[in-house]
Write a protein that binds this DNA or RNA. Structure first.
Ligand SMILES: [Mn+2]
Ligand SMILES: [Mn+2]
Ligand SMILES: [Zn+2]
Ligand SMILES: [Zn+2]
Lengths: 145, 145
DNA sequence: TCTTTATTGCAATCTGTTTGCATTTACCTT
DNA sequence: AAGGTAAATGCAAACAGATTGCAATAAAGA
C-alpha cells in the first residue's frame, strides 16, 4: 500500500505513524507529480465522513515538508500547494513548474535547465549561494488542441 | 514632480487623478525598481497623520495594475508586493527577480535570459503560448561580504 | 498492559485582502 | 464659477488561508 521508503523516512525522523498522516500521504501519492492544496486534500479525505481535521492536514504537511518528503509551493498565488517528493527528487530536486492557463493544472517539468548560466553571470556580479525557481505558464498539450 | 507619462496614462484610462492615487504613485516612484507591499505603502503615506485608508491603497494598486502601470508579485510568499513599471518595462517587460535570503530585498534583474531555449523545447512537446517567470535567491552583493 | 510523549480536534485567533454602502470628490457641463 | 454625475473614498464588516493554545487522545516503547 504505502511505499516502504516513505514509512521508513517518517520513522527515521522520529515521527509517529498516525492516521491523519497516512491519509494525507495516500492522497499525495495518488496525486503524484501534481500539486494539491490543503483544502483539496481535506475534501478528498473527508468526502464520505469527517475523519480528519483541516488543522491536522496543515500540521502534517508542515512536518512532512520539514523532513523533505513534501514540497510546498507558494508560487502560483492563491492557496499553497503541496506535492510528495519522489525518492529521487529528494536527492537532486530542482524546481521547474508549468501552470496551464486553461485547465489550471500544475505540472512538474523534469530535465536539465540552463538557468545555471544565468546564475554564473550573477556570481560574477557579487551574488552568491544562488538557487532558483522557474515558473512557466501557457497552454498544456491537452488544452492546446 | 510626477512624471507626465504616468499622469497621461491614468487619464487615458479614464481614471481620476485622486489624492490617494497620487500618494501611492509617489511612494512607488521613490521605491523605483524595488517591490513594496500595500502595508508598507500605507505606513509611508500615513507616518505623520492618517491621510489615506489601506483599502484605497489596495484599490489603487489594483487599478494601476489593470492599466499596467504597476506590477504585482505574489512570488515570494507573504504579502503581495508591487512596483511601478517603468516606461520601457511596459513595452518589453520581462520578469527576473532576485530575493536576498539575508536582507530580504527583492531586486529586479534586467537583461536577456536563456529560458527561451527551454520554452522552445516545450513547444516541441505540445505546449504553447508560453511565458515564464524566474525567481532567484541567495545572497546579494552587499550581504555577501 | 502501562507510561510517556507526540499528535489530534476544536475553537479561537491572525494576517492579508476584499466587499457593501453611505459619503465625498474629481471633473465635465453649463 | 457653480452644479450635476459618476467614480472613488473611508469605514466597518466579511473573507480566506493559515496558525495557535489547550485539553483530550493515541502511538510507540517498556
Ligand atoms: Mn532550473
Ligand atoms: Mn526570462
Ligand atoms: Zn491545460
Ligand atoms: Zn541582501
Amino acid at each position: 500500500m504505502d511505499e516502504q521508503w516513505i514509512i521508513d523516512k517518517i520513522k527515521a525522523a522520529g515521527l509517529k505513524l498516525t492516521r491523519p498522516r497516512m491519509l494525507v500521504i495516500e492522497v499525495l501519492r495518488q496525486n503524484k507529480n501534481g500539486f494539491i492544496s490543503a483544502d483539496e486534500i481535506f475534501n478528498l479525505i473527508n468526502h464520505k465522513e469527517k475523519v480528519c481535521d483541516l488543522t491536522s492536514i496543515y500540521r502534517t504537511l508542515t512536518s512532512l515538508e520539514e523532513i523533505q518528503l513534501v514540497e510546498k509551493s507558494d508560487f502560483f498565488g492563491e492557496a499553497s500547494q503541496y506535492r510528495l517528493l519522489s525518492h529521487q527528487d529528494h536527492y537532486h530536486h530542482h524546481h521547474h513548474y508549468f501552470k496551464c492557463n486553461e485547465c489550471g493544472k500544475i505540472e512538474v517539468l523534469c530535465g536539465d535547465c540552463n538557468v545555471v548560466q544565468y546564475e554564473n553571470d550573477l556570481k560574477k556580479r557579487g551574488f552568491s549561494n544562488l538557487s532558483h525557481r522557474l515558473e512557466l505558464s501557457g497552454l498544456c498539450p491537452s488544452c492546446n488542441k
